[in-house]
Simulated assay, not measured.
Amino acid sequence: MRKKGLQITNDHGWTIERLQEQERKMKKANMAKRIAVIRLIMQGYLGIQVAELLNLHRETVSIYVQKFNQGGMDALLERRYASGRKPYLSPEEERELKKCWKKALLPMKDTALKRAGILGLFNMC
């Protein structure tokens, strides 16, 4: 009979002890938390229990288990970032705009803009 709940179907050679050691070595807390999810599931905790213990959504726990089962530690710790919105201005237009701002702000060197660090942004070009 199959056990109910999330399961590690492929441990990729990782033991509970090795996972604990890896957790302690991890410098980023969010990555250590991902490893903790796998360790706790391997120890027999239910997904909902792991979610409560680590203050995660239960779906996030499921996603981490799925990633680990499919690709091991590399897949679990992989972070993909969105590429972001395409800029409205071309690089040439950006340079021109910076030049205009620099000229406009030049007489205002002792203002709140300088104290706020805004002038420094335009002095970089």
Rank of each mutant, 00 (worst) to 15 (best):
K102M: 12
K99D: 08
L97R: 11
T60L: 07
R58L: 03
L54Y: 01
R34C: 06
K27I: 11
K98S: 02
F68K: 14
K67P: 01
K102P: 01
A112T: 14
F68V: 11
Y81E: 11
Y88L: 10
L40D: 12
E17L: 02
R80G: 11
Y88S: 13
I63W: 06
R24A: 12
K27G: 02
E93Q: 14
L46S: 15
K98R: 14
T15A: 04
L54S: 04
A82Q: 08
D74L: 08
Y64L: 15
N55S: 13
I16R: 06
K102C: 10
K109N: 12
R95N: 14
R24T: 05
I35D: 12
R18C: 05
N55A: 04
S90N: 12
S90I: 06
W14E: 11
K28L: 13
I35F: 12
F68N: 04
R85F: 14
R85H: 10
R58Y: 05
R80F: 02
C100K: 14
L19P: 00
K98M: 13
E92K: 12
L89H: 08
A51N: 00
V50Y: 00
A75K: 05
G72T: 05
T15S: 09
A51H: 00
P87L: 07
P91W: 00
I38F: 09
K98L: 09
L97V: 11
L89S: 06
E93G: 07
A51V: 01
R79Y: 07
Q20K: 10
R39Q: 14
E92L: 15
L54E: 01
R34Q: 07
P87E: 08
E94K: 12
I63A: 13
A51R: 01
L56H: 00
D74P: 05
G44S: 04
S90C: 06
C100T: 12
N69C: 05
A112I: 14
K25Q: 06
I16V: 10
M31F: 14
T111K: 04
W101R: 07
L76Y: 00
L77F: 02
G72K: 04
L76W: 02
S62A: 15
D74E: 09
R95E: 15
K25P: 00
N55Y: 04
Q70N: 09
R95A: 12
W101L: 15
I41T: 13
E93W: 02
G72N: 01
L46H: 13
I16E: 04
A51D: 01
A51W: 01
M42Q: 15
